[in-house]
Write a protein that binds this DNA or RNA. Structure first.
Lengths: 198, 198, 198, 198
DNA sequence: GATGAATGAGAATTCATTCAT
DNA sequence: AATGAATGAATTCTCATTCAT
């Protein structure tokens, strides 16, 4: 499994290798040699697919952020109007993505800081859109009286931080299933917003 | 302020510089030259205070973990027996340390992975002791019926993760005071454990 | 204008791009990628028009040296037998070429050294033919008593060096016209050979 | 002679090696490895003496330009007031430096273009000071009627270009002595300015 | 003729660390 | 304790060139 050269596409192999390397060793700890070796590709070949090491990370994070947002937005299109159901659906989808893509979720939070100012700002904006999504739901709930928290912004941040943490300990062979975790964290979120039980 | 050579003690200057550099650029992103420059010390002098770059990190993390644990334990010695009060006190102390030492708190979580196996395991054990502290309080509360959560272990992890996140966004010149934040997070923790209001 | 792909002929575009790149950045400073980009051609296509980077330079220098020599020789076919007129005509033609082709003239002198021994020697021979041309005129004049210099070889070299220098500062939008410069340098040459005024 | 490690001073060995390498292969053609090898020093050690390859060149050119200017100015302090004598002295000193330091003189003219804008501009200013020196003498002569040229600026440039060319062909074992060459070029300069013989 | 991927050598530079003084 | 020079391995990235399509 140390060689992805037979993958249909070298490009995919390179980005998969970069993802793995960044997740495992961090942006500065992973070397281009390392990535090339994992991808089963010669070092200089990496530069066909990205102009620089930073670019590899940027592309990875752009896709991760976009997918994370999309997955969450998509879940909401199927949820009814109740803030309680919407928050539950959003958290489950958000957590679901993390459980399905722990490496992406990990580097999205931990390696962002090593990017140049421009790229970083643009990616932070993408992340802020997810935050706005949750914030919207929570404030709706507060206005409707279904959520009782008086710190909606702080709670939003707490919910997202708490979920992001999953990427640090989740292992696929663990004892908790994807749905267990998603459900558990949905409960935590409802607790944090002070959701009134019917 | 880029030069700490006038600090009473070169050793302190070196460790303060290392802390700053690791917090800002990560373990692999910070170079020994960088640290020396920040400390106002000549490169080779760093090796009078630590045998290696890893050692600098180990020392910093040992102290950070110890202090974090101590601060939390100390707060509990002054709290009465009620799980609710104990959890509140523990969270406030735990958050208080993070707010007072955001760089230490940051690297304690993010740079641990770059250590060798031995050092890392020993430091994780230290962190587990804090976790055990919270876990003990929460399970006491559950047994006593004051806390209603049915996922005490998960909640413990959620609380600690949520708190650790503070180190990423907290800035001393922000609009929230140390006590505001501590109080807010204590509320979040109580919500998560399902603390029954009197 | 950075793309010459629409030029009637890709070959010309490639050599024009190589000329520009070598003149601007020097042989080692210009990369094949650079040349391809300027030519509006894909990198590997360069190798349809030359076997190597050195070959590009050799072809350019061969043509430049040949054209420079031809232009000078041609001018002499229209000049009368007087050494004074012949020298004037030769210098004007020699300078004329430089003014019309500053990049060619520049690399002919500065980049020759980067060629392999064989190519370099053959090109130096071509340059020597121009030198012989001037030398012949000057020695004729000395023998005839019209030129008074006692260092004919040294003067020949001085004249040619002086003219070659034009390529370094001449810009088409400058205040001196092609004819101004040619006339001026013809005067300098006559002064150097010690031409006796009638 | 390929190893200068026994030179009293590594710094000098490094700069001497860089000079040699740049003169022989050009700035881009000479590699840092190459320079280190010539200096008898380990590659990474070069960076103790210069921050970059460009810096090596800058330092070399700064010193060369300064020395060239100083030598010329110094010669003028010993010359009487006659423009003719002054020009003779200046040319002899200028040429003398070139003959004594052909490598310095060579790179001063040919490698300047590879520097960054800032460094290049500052070095060109230094070169302009030499040009101003010659220009002053020549215009003095023209005003005094001893020099008859009507293109003083052009002649200045021609004189300097012609002299700079010496660095390209002069070899210490050649048949012309330092004084022969200096005298010859002084004569050329006097011819170019149209100096009136007594 | 044209293309894009591939390659291995080599580029400049930085790294953590050591050592003699 | 402090210094500055030294070292060798590793870093990111670019090079000229080749090849299958």
């Amino acid at each position: 499994m140390n060689d992805r050269s037979t993958a249909s596409n070298s490009r995919d192999a390179v980005y998969a290798a970069a993802l793995e390397a960044f997740a495992e060793k961090g942006f500065h700890g992973a070397s281009m040699r390392d990535i090339a070796r994992r991808a089963g590709v010669v070092l200089s070949n990496l530069y066909h697919y990205a102009d620089s090491k930073s670019d590899l990370l940027v592309e990875l994070l752009k896709k991760a952020n976009y997918d994370h947002l999309s997955a969450t937005e998509w879940a909401l299109t199927g949820a009814d109007a109740s803030p309680r159901h919407r928050l539950e659906a959003a958290v489950k989808a958000y957590v679901g993505y993390i459980v399905d893509h722990p490496m992406e979720a990990l580097i999205a939070h931990s390696e962002l800081r090593y990017l140049g100012d421009d790229d970083r700002k643009r990616l932070v904006m993408a992340r802020d859109r997810v935050e706005a999504l949750f914030d919207g739901i929570i404030e709706d709930g507060v206005r409707a009286g279904t959520f009782t928290t008086s710190h909606s912004r702080g709670v939003t941040r707490a919910v997202l931080t708490m979920c992001a943490g999953i990427a640090q300990w989740y292992r696929q062979d663990g004892r908790l299933s994807r749905e267990d975790i998603a459900g558990e964290y949905a409960d935590y979120a409802l607790a944090l917003v002070g959701s009134i039980h019917d």
